[in-house]
Design a protein around this nucleic acid. Structure first.
Length: 953
RNA sequence: GCUCGAGUGGUGGAAUUGGUAGACACGUUGGACUUAAAAUCCAAUGGACAUUAGUCCGUAUGGGUUCAAGUCCCAUCUCGAGUACCA
């Protein structure tokens, strides 16, 4: 009887769906285990073989944990808001909801055919109003919160209001905008409601502010820092410019230190932690205040605050540099320098972010004519502006120490500014000396002779005495812009009264996305929601009404922006715990039971986006008492990418002939992608198929080698445009889902990226066939299993000692491998096991039953089929994972005295199944080892057949 | 530039705390079965010499520690990922 995988798989998938086999209960006496995948964005292209890699791994782990007796939560859903559906809508007029629904259908079919054990009853979609109701709700909670530095957590905004009305803001230690002035309790109470609202906005965790944003004209929207790669947009690669706009922002900077500290408490991959650490960019140093010198012609003693990590080099500061955008520039520039400075500012503003980054080498700047007083020497130092100082980092101003910083050195050299040397015995005539650990300070008054660390401390101490500085920690992490000028995203539950944002109460949520005729920005440049005619809020009836009813008395305009992609993905892992709850985001009982994610598998590309924002939201939710854990995922695994193996044909430039790879030599050729499905395993091109696929080459002349056209190969990212996409549907049809699952695991370590190569799948497919054949006798194809449970190694039809050994070796290895996520080596272990059992013609139930359970996480369908044939009525999903019983390998270990060369004696520990003679033979075979052992007296030598495993002592 | 990570056959990759390097699989070659093909099964497969036994060389390169190094240490080279005027 043939191994008919297609039939078997379809049957079991239906059985699992009909019986809701993988439904997780929120009430269970079992210990919980939560295995989470990053939910997919349902793109129009469907899945390729690279996408399910992480899902297969998490499914293996989830099934394994179920076998181990855990109540496993393994949900799946869709991150279904996003740009591609919107752009498709712009081009075709098709509503994004329709394309999204169609794409989800394809995804679901593709996921189902791979046999995943998802609990689909908990499916969420971020674009579903029932879901985004709670995304909007979290936003409202953020709006209604502020960050108290004294308690080091987020608190209800009402606690801030009551502080303001009793004592003003002087005693309040909050994370807030920098431009809040001081006021007393009496002041606060005398402010108008609008003034109060304006002040509160500067404290809220979700706040509205005029911020300089990354504006992408081509996409017509702003982008967060993590959505920009090398100065162009991540999606589409369009240029990005700086622009001031009123935007919603998230005060994630309040959590910078906690986001760093939290990394020590979670088991996440080191590269991922490193990239979050770099992104947060903590740097410890000092803030120093310089004052402008009035005698140089400036009208006032303006303070200029700078941030430095090297306060020890303060005596080497020979000038200051301000960012061209710095607000003081206009105030301090002397009239004779004004023309030059203005020209420079204008020139910088014109340069796009990209130009500025591409052109790091060229040095430019302008002198303001003003001077600042050095805090210690009291000597005047010139104030310059230069675009190497960034407005967005620190205070946008630096004290320039050319002898200790290469950029300052280059700037000083270029503009002929003196470079005083403050390092003992260091030559700085060719470059700056930045190695702080090796520096000893000189020419620096009270810092002379001090090493780096002491010098820093002393400098800060002296600055504090002067009242001109203090130790400070600076973070690179900026607040996250939260508004997008797009259609296909969560609308804000916000309307505006007198220009001030008002939140819509929970009971009136969700605010559903309005219908629009066009998905493009309006002619006046408003976001796409500006096209909606039914988009105003009636605060009397609490409902969305038509724009024409706006009267600014009870009917007000709604916010025209939508939320960014990461909004919906920042709380989905918690919503899965109680996805159908309409009264709460999740019940207390549900979150208390499930707590957090035990294993999260997904791509590292979300390191500074989704994964950072989600940690921020979780910490916020923790502060406000909604969740019991302040990190949402205990363990994280980043699966590698499966790359494609592209095929190339070579067109000779002059003749347009298509030349086989081996004949190209040094001819000038253009490589052209060929569809990988037209190439066989020996890299031979199906010429006829190729011409059918690309009719342009119908008459092309092919230059063959040995009558074949051989293509070139290159490993690239799998993508439609490279014609190297392998569709899992095709693989499943030909080899079955179990083969695909096994093969993706067999391909290599989970965390590593590796190229796809379809021809290798025959190896694991052969394994499954062998497993099948083991218990189906050849002639009539009947299922055959010996039921005898006679003793180990005994006569009759029970399992032999060798069979038990094969099985238990496998149990041990597979269990260890699953716990370590080394799925590739456990697949090899299965193959060895089945080969050994086949050689021994094993038909014993006592071997087959545990083996079926063992294999079932990897190849669930065939395992279920065997399980059923063994006479079980329940699904294998609830079977118990076999335990390793070492007595089948080694019944006991004894110690034997062994002598070498008649001289040395030591005891060895050996398995009972080996005779003393065997051991001696094994040891003697290692002549080298013997020689090397001479002169030492090991306490113990651990031996397995033919091998010395360890020498102790 | 900085921060991580990695270099093992023709290929993907194995190798517990240092303990027979190359498991397992692909590919290749030869054989069996077949009219033929597919499928299946068997054998060989790091290199060199020897073809019976065997010997020598081999984990990017050069050193070092150790009885013993793919594994630990130092230096160099190469590749990959992230980040980039962050003061």
């Amino acid at each position: 009887m043939r191994y008919n995988f297609n039939e078997i798989e379809a049957n079991w998938q239906k059985y699992w769906a009909d019986n809701q086999t993988f439904k997780a209960e929120n009430n269970s006496d079992k210990e919980k285990f939560y295995v989470l995948d990053m939910f997919p964005y349902p793109s129009g292209a469907g899945l390729h073989v690279g996408h399910p890699l992480g899902y297969i791994a998490s499914d293996i782990y989830a099934r394994y944990k179920r076998h181990k007796g855990y109540n496993v939560l393994h949900p799946q859903g869709y991150d279904s808001f996003g740009l591609p559906a919107e752009q498709y809508a712009i081009q075709t007029g098709q509503h994004p909801a329709i394309t999204t629904a169609a794409n989800i259908k394809t995804y679901r079919r593709q996921l189902d055919q791979l046999g995943f054990s998802f609990d689909w009853s908990r499916e969420v979609r971020t674009s579903d109003p029932k879901y985004y109701k709670w995304t909007q709700w979290v936003f409202v909670q953020l709006f209604n919160s502020w960050y108290n530095k004294d308690t080091n957590k987020a608190e209800d905004i009402e606690t801030l209001v009551s502080k303001f009305s009793s004592d003003g803001n002087v005693e309040v230690n909050a994370v807030c905008d920098e431009d809040v002035g001081e006021f007393s309790g009496a002041d606060w109470n005398s402010f108008s409601s609008k003034e109060q609202q304006e002040i509160l906005l500067k404290y809220r965790l979700a706040y509205l502010a005029d911020t300089e944003v990354n504006w992408c004209p081509a996409l017509g929207t702003v982008l967060a820092n993590d959505e920009i790669i090398n100065g162009v947009s991540e999606r589409g690669g369009h240029p990005v410019i700086r622009k001031k706009m009123t935007q919603w922002s998230m005060r994630i900077s309040a959590y910078a230190q906690r986001l760093l500290d939290g990394l020590d408490t979670i088991d996440w991959p080191q590269p991922l932690k490193d990239s979050q650490t770099n992104w947060i960019g903590r740097s410890q140093g000092a803030s120093v205040t310089f004052y402008t010198v009035t005698s140089s012609g400036v009208d006032k003693r303006y303070p200029i605050e700078v941030f430095t990590t090297r306060p020890d080099t303060i005596f080497g500061a020979s000038f200051m540099t301000l960012a061209p955008e710095h607000e003081l520039v206009a105030k301090i520039t002397l009239s004779e320098q004004k023309a030059e400075v203005d020209a420079y500012i204008e020139a910088t503003a014109k340069r796009s972010e990209r130009d500025r980054m591409a052109d790091v080498k060229s040095i430019s700047g302008a002198f303001t004519g003003a001077y600042a007083e050095h805090p210690f020497t009291k000597k005047p130092i010139p104030i310059w502006i230069g675009d190497y100082v960034l407005a967005g980092y620190g205070t946008g101003a630096v004290m320039s120490v050319p002898c200790g910083d290469q950029r300052d050195w280059d700037f000083a050299k270029h503009f002929n500014i003196p470079i005083p040397n403050i390092f003992e015995g260091i030559d700085i005539s060719e470059e700056a000396f930045a190695d702080k650990e090796k520096s000893v300070i000189a020419n620096s008054d009270f810092l002379n002779g001090l090493p780096y660390k002491k010098a820093v401390k002393t400098a800060i101490y002296e600055l504090e005495k002067l009242g001109q500085g203090e130790g400070k920690i600076n973070y690179r992490l900026r607040d996250a812009v939260f508004s997008r000028q797009r259609y296909w995203g969560e609308p804000f539950p916000v309307y505006y009264v007198d220009g001030m944002p008002q939140m819509i109460a929970t009971e009136h949520l969700p605010i559903e996305l309005p219908e629009v005729e066009k998905y493009l920005p309006t002619e006046t440049g408003e976001p796409p929601l500006g096209n909606a005619t039914y988009w105003a809020w009636d605060s009397a009836s609490n409902e969305v009404v038509a724009n024409e009813k706006i009267d600014h008395k009870t009917v007000f305009p709604l916010d025209l922006n939508t939320m960014p992609g990461w909004a919906g993905s920042s709380q989905y892992f918690n919503r899965y715990m109680d996805p159908h709850n309409e009264a709460e985001i999740f019940s207390k009982a549900a979150i208390d039971y499930w707590q957090d994610v035990d294993l999260y598998i997904g791509g590292i590309e979300h390191a500074t986006g989704h994964l950072l924002y989600s940690r921020f939201w979780q910490k916020f939710m923790f502060d406000r008492g909604y969740v019991p854990q302040d990190e949402f995922a205990k363990k994280m695994i980043n699966q590698g990418m499966i790359t494609g193996t592209s095929a190339f044909i070579y067109r000779e430039e002059k003749t347009a002939r298509l030349i086989s790879k081996g004949l190209v030599a040094d001819k000038k050729v253009t490589p052209i992608h060929a569809d990988v499905s037209l190439v066989n395993a020996s890299d031979e091109l199906d010429i006829e198929g190729f011409q059918k696929w690309q009719p342009d080459y119908k008459d092309a002349e092919f230059e063959l080698e040995n009558g074949k056209y051989i293509v070139g190969r290159e490993v690239e990212k799998m993508s439609k445009s490279k014609y190297n996409v392998v569709n899992p549907d095709d693989i499943v049809k030909e080899y079955g889902a179990d083969s695909l699952r096994l093969y993706e695991m067999f391909l290599g370590p989970l965390e590593q990226s590796k190229p796809w190569n379809t021809s290798g799948i025959t190896g694991v497919h052969g394994f499954l066939k062998k497993l099948w054949k083991l218990f189906h006798s050849g002639e009539n194809g009947t299922f055959y299993v010996t039921d005898s449970h006679s003793s180990v190694g005994g006569q009759g039809e029970g399992p032999s000692a060798d069979m038990l050994k094969s099985l238990h070796k496998t149990i041990k290895k597979v269990e260890e491998d699953i716990e370590n996520f080394s799925f590739n080596t456990s697949v090899s272990t299965f193959m060895i096991c089945v080969n050994e059992l086949t050689a021994q013609k094993c038909t014993s139930r006592a071997i087959l039953e545990p083996l079926a359970i063992l294999v079932s996480p990897y190849a669930p369908h065939i395992a279920e089929e065997l399980w059923k044939k063994l006479g079980h009525s329940e699904s294998i999903a609830i079977a118990t994972f076999p335990t390793f019983e070492p007595q089948h390998l080694v019944e006991s270990s004894k110690e034997y005295p062994i002598s070498f060369n008649g001289k040395m004696r030591f005891k060895i520990e050996l398995p009972a199944e080996m005779s003393k003679e065997d051991i001696e033979a094994a040891v003697m075979a290692h002549e080298k080892t013997q020689q090397q052992l001479a002169g030492r007296t090991p306490k113990k030598v651990i031996v397995v057949p033919g091998k010395i495993v360890n020498i102790v002592g």
